[in-house]
């Protein structure tokens, strides 16, 4: 009788101990996981209209390089990133802006006027004047800003930059 009572007390103690241990572990683990993965959960929304310069400075039908910088705050540190684009005025009113970042592995493409192609120096990807893939490894055309994403205000060309 006394024995059975003793055993149940034992089991109670074991169970409580295990429960308390699990509780402490869980209360540490859950915030810890959130703490560790936190930066991955934050969306770095850097959506903004970025000026590229006077529209008149760009010739119609001829891609011209332009660049701009954006600064973002990563934690306690501020980073200034540069972005390059090619501005192509397809007509008096229409402008197409292409990112110079190759869609293959992210090298910077260059414009070759003689071939009328963008060529990536890393793996010889070729893109047409409108960014379409002509040859080489890239999976998709160059990223573009056109239509709604481009505007002209007071003669200055803006693109709607959505982040890297």
């Amino acid at each position: 009788m006394a024995g059975s009572h003793h055993i149940s007390r034992r089991d109670f103690i074991k169970l409580t101990t295990a429960a308390v241990g699990t509780f402490i572990g869980a209360v540490v683990a859950v915030p810890a996981i959130a703490y560790l993965i936190d930066p991955a959960l934050k969306s770095a929304s850097t959506d903004a209209w970025v000026p590229l310069g006077k529209l008149a400075a760009f010739e119609i039908g001829k891609p011209a390089p332009a660049s701009f910088t954006r600064s973002i705050v990563n934690g306690w540190e501020k980073t200034v990133n540069s972005y390059g684009v090619f501005v192509l005025r397809t007509s008096e009113t229409e402008t197409l802006v292409l990112s110079n970042k190759c869609t293959h592995l992210g090298c910077h493409v260059n414009w070759f006027a003689d071939k009328q192609e963008y060529i990536c120096p890393c793996h010889d990807a070729q893109f047409g004047i409108n960014g379409q893939v002509l040859g080489g490894p890239p999976p998709r055309p160059l990223d573009r800003y056109s239509g709604d994403q481009v505007k002209v205000e007071d003669g200055i060309l803006f693109i709607h930059f959505l982040g890297a």
Binding site: R10, I13, K14, T16, T17, V20, G21, F23, I24, V27
Partner: peptide
């Protein structure tokens, strides 16, 4: 185990809750 650890853990739990 389990008599002492039981007490130890209860005290630790108290400390833990106090810290939180």
């Amino acid at each position: 185990w389990p008599d002492s650890i039981y007490k130890d853990l209860l005290v630790s739990l108290g400390i833990f809750i106090l810290l939180i």
